[in-house]
């Protein structure tokens, strides 16, 4: 191939219809790429939520079953109170309270008397109401 033919081949442009078709194909491809991830993202969000809901539902059903008490195979008879052979209660007699001798109000209980006898002997005499030898 001569130089002139190569230069002509490289400098030649496609036809207008070819350019329009290529541009339309490129636009469609770009639009398809743009819409595809959005659809995928929406699907991946719903899937874990649905799985968790299913798991919670299953756990609730299991817990409800486990909580239930199975009926006894044999029921014991009801207990009854035995009668004890005890005497009937009697009223206790209250012990008699002997009060301590209380001093009467208003009367003098103690009187201390100081005397000096003629020989110089000093006497201190105590009169006490509660004195009992």
């Amino acid at each position: 191939m001569s130089q002139d033919e190569l230069r002509q081949l490289l400098s030649s442009l496609p036809e207008d219809a070819e350019l329009a078709a290529r541009a339309a194909r490129a636009r469609r491809g770009a639009l398809a790429r743009l819409e595809q991830p959005v659809r995928a993202r929406g699907g991946w969000l719903w899937a874990p939520a649905l799985a968790v809901f299913v798991l919670v539902l299953a756990a609730g059903v299991w817990a409800n079953r486990a909580r239930r008490v199975e009926p006894l195979l044999w029921s014991p008879p009801a207990p009854h109170i035995a009668v004890a052979p005890l005497p009937a209660p009697q009223r206790a007699t209250a012990p008699k309270r002997i009060p301590r001798p209380a001093p009467r109000a208003g009367k003098q209980e103690r009187l201390e008397l100081h005397l000096a006898l003629s020989d110089g002997t000093r006497v201190q005499w105590i009169f006490d109401k509660n004195f009992s030898l």
């Binding site: 003098q108 009187l111 201390e112 002997t121 000093r122 006497v123 201190q124 005499w125 105590i126 009169f127 006490d128 109401k129 509660n130 004195f131 009992s132 030898l133």
Partner: peptide
């Protein structure tokens, strides 16, 4: 325990003091 006699007395050295108690 009843208290028969309870008092304070000032006594000089060598002195004898008479302390007494009775009912009124």
């Amino acid at each position: 325990t009843p208290t028969l006699l309870e008092t304070s007395a000032g006594v000089k050295d060598g002195e004898t003091v008479v302390l007494g108690a009775s009912k009124m």
